[in-house]
Amino acid sequence: MKIGSIAIGGLGISGSYLLRRMKDSGFNVTGFDPKVPNYYIPCGYATNIKKLKIYMKKIGIDADKYVLSRSSKITFSGHNFKPIEFGSMGLCTIDKNMLERDMIDGLDTKREIISGEFNLVVDATGVSRFYLGKHTSDLLMPAREYLTDSAHHSDFYFYFFEGGKGYYWEFPLGDHYHIGSGAVDLEMIDSYLKPVPHLRVTGRKIRLKPLFDQISRDNVIGTGEAIGTVSPITGEGIIPSLKSAEILFQCLRKNDDLEEVKIKYSGEIIKNFRSYPELYRLLSKVQRGENFHIQDLKAALFARKDLRNFGIGFKITKVIGHFLR
């Protein structure tokens, strides 16, 4: 089937970017999202400004305008290991709310779920997979975030729970801080967050499992967190979701047959995110309480690259003694 009209459902980071990218290139595309105006996005707001600039340049947006805080050092701590400091490779927090509004400013959008007939529906609804439907197997981790006036650490801080069960974080956010936690159960989250004074509370679930075997259905193709482009290690989804949206855009630009697009897109996602299944396997191994061995080195190197892509000058030599037995 030839692709003529396109609807994008969900105007988060991947949907908004894709809508702007496609509209600027002359596609017949409409964006749909039922979120109310000024909806406060539940998200850590942390990403790599160097990577973000690459994508924003493609749509004529100055990424520096949205930076709230830039890291100078990042501290990792956790169960049974002392704090370790790493340098920054671009980690920052951004005003994601403003960025998403500006990306779709002046475009054809509707504050509702998709209505009408379209040749292609892009599911960019994140964790809900509203248009693709539920995956046959999934891993969703609950997360909660507090907006606060102060934090114990002035720069970026991560505390990793025992057994890969989640982590606690403190991120500077301009004049405020985001203090949050994601874990396998809410009781663990509450034990860390309840004592924290806060101005606002928000929460969501984070998809940690790549779902690359079910990224399309009929005339629906998924992008971003809807297909699992979220790091199983850091929970970062901004840059990976932009990357998936750009891949879909390039496939649509080069092909106008829906089935051909689905095949090309699936192949490119698997190729470009080939580390994610390995990272998920690594996470699962930790959660099962299994020790790391030398055969896990490949996955450990993927984890290092993933952390560096997030903007953390991670050095595996600083932590290998703790994990590799």
Rank of each mutant, 00 (worst) to 15 (best):
K2Q: 14
I3Q: 02
S5V: 03
G12C: 04
I13V: 15
G15D: 04
L18S: 01
R20Y: 00
F32M: 09
N38W: 14
Y40N: 13
Y45D: 15
A46V: 12
T47P: 07
I49V: 15
I49K: 14
K50R: 14
K53Y: 01
Y55N: 04
M56E: 10
I61R: 10
D62P: 02
D64V: 07
L68D: 05
S69W: 05
R70V: 03
S72E: 14
S72N: 13
F76M: 09
E85S: 12
C92R: 02
T93A: 03
N97K: 14
M98H: 11
L107K: 08
T109Q: 08
K110I: 01
K110N: 08
I113P: 11
I114D: 10
F118E: 05
L120M: 00
V121Y: 11
V121Q: 06
V121P: 07
D123A: 08
T125F: 08
G126Y: 02
V127S: 12
R129L: 04
F130T: 14
L132Q: 07
K134A: 14
H135K: 13
T136I: 12
L140C: 09
M141R: 08
R144W: 09
L147T: 08
T148D: 01
D149I: 12
S150A: 12
S150C: 10
S150E: 13
A151K: 06
D155L: 07
F158L: 11
G166T: 06
Y167N: 01
Y168K: 01
D175V: 09
Y177E: 06
I189D: 00
P197N: 11
H198L: 03
H198A: 05
H198N: 13
G203D: 00
R204E: 13
R207C: 10
F212T: 00
D213Q: 11
D213I: 03
I215A: 05
I215T: 11
I221G: 08
G222N: 06
A226R: 03
I227Q: 00
T229A: 07
S244E: 01
A245I: 01
E246H: 11
F249H: 11
K254T: 12
K254G: 02
L258E: 01
K264T: 09
K264I: 07
S266H: 10
I270A: 13
K271G: 00
K271W: 03
S275E: 13
Y276I: 03
P277D: 08
Q287C: 02
Q287I: 09
Q287V: 00
Q287R: 15
I294H: 11
A299F: 06
A299N: 07
A303V: 04
R304P: 00
R304V: 15
R308K: 11
R308M: 13
I312K: 09
G313V: 03
K315L: 12
I320G: 06
H322F: 15
F323I: 15
L324T: 07
L324Y: 08
R325S: 14
